[in-house]
Design a protein around this nucleic acid. Structure first.
Lengths: 131, 131
DNA sequence: CTATTTGCAAACGCTTTGCCTGATT
DNA sequence: AATCAGGCAAAGCGTTTGCAAATAG
């Protein structure tokens, strides 16, 4: 799948160009509507397929977990998560980075930060040793 | 909705207890299966409803992105995002925190961090002034 | 040529909701 | 008694997929 030859069809090119020329981090549907102005009979399925292909090729990136499951956490206090890329387990990370990070952004940008969310990806201790 | 009186039913209590006693950040379905061992005729809808109520009450937290839509980004390079809580716009934040943050966690925990994801929430410049 | 891609529509899978009965205060 | 919660099943909704026709290389 990932190592097959990719064609640069009119649809794929247009989707990529539209996405490269906006800063609003659009949804698939927004892209669909935008591309439809050039290719009126394009289908939403094609947009989704191409967005996935383009992400696979590393030309764009996807924000969000799509339609995966929500996870629930019995601890309502602010803390970070570590997600193991091998076994999929989610761990809590207690580290006092909160204040530092928000202070830093508040001081170096015009944004007013009220909250943030930070997730780490990598290998958990178990998966580092096993194999 | 949020300010109505909440009853602590057997179902709600059990769901909360099960969630408080695990560290695996389970999915709704996992919770459903676990609670079913105590309340065999509980329904999945009840689990979802109660998870939402418990989150509203601040007793648990939900790990997802609030929105069900995926967002696409024409910039595949690593960067952070700022999401305005008022107008919903998503902005890029370019700040050289990447190396510092990963180094910090790599040095103070047994996790091997390969990547991370950081999002800020608050008010964008426009929404700070426009009352 | 022929493997990839498209358009269409149906299927998917997680989550929410409507309705009515049952439980709680 | 009045209100809130539960069970069940169907609907919602963004996303994926199967298939025949179209097309890039």
């Amino acid at each position: 799948m990932s190592n097959r030859k990719k064609r640069m069809t009119k649809q794929r090119k247009t989707i990529l160009r539209v996405l490269k020329h906006t800063k609003i981090h659009p949804t698939a549907d927004w892209i669909y509507e935008a591309v439809k102005k050039e290719i009126p009979n394009i289908s939403l399925g094609t947009v989704y397929r191409n967005l996935n292909v383009l992400a696979e090729m590393g030309k764009i990136s996807v924000l969000d977990f799509g339609s995966t499951y929500s996870r629930y956490d019995g601890n309502p206090a602010n803390h970070y998560h570590f997600i193991c890329e091998k076994c999929g387990k989610i761990y809590d990370i207690d580290h006092p980075l909160f204040d530092i990070i928000e202070k830093e952004i508040n001081e170096t940008s015009e944004f007013q930060v009220n909250n943030h969310r930070l997730e780490f990806y990598g290998l958990c201790p178990d998966c580092q040793t096993k194999n």
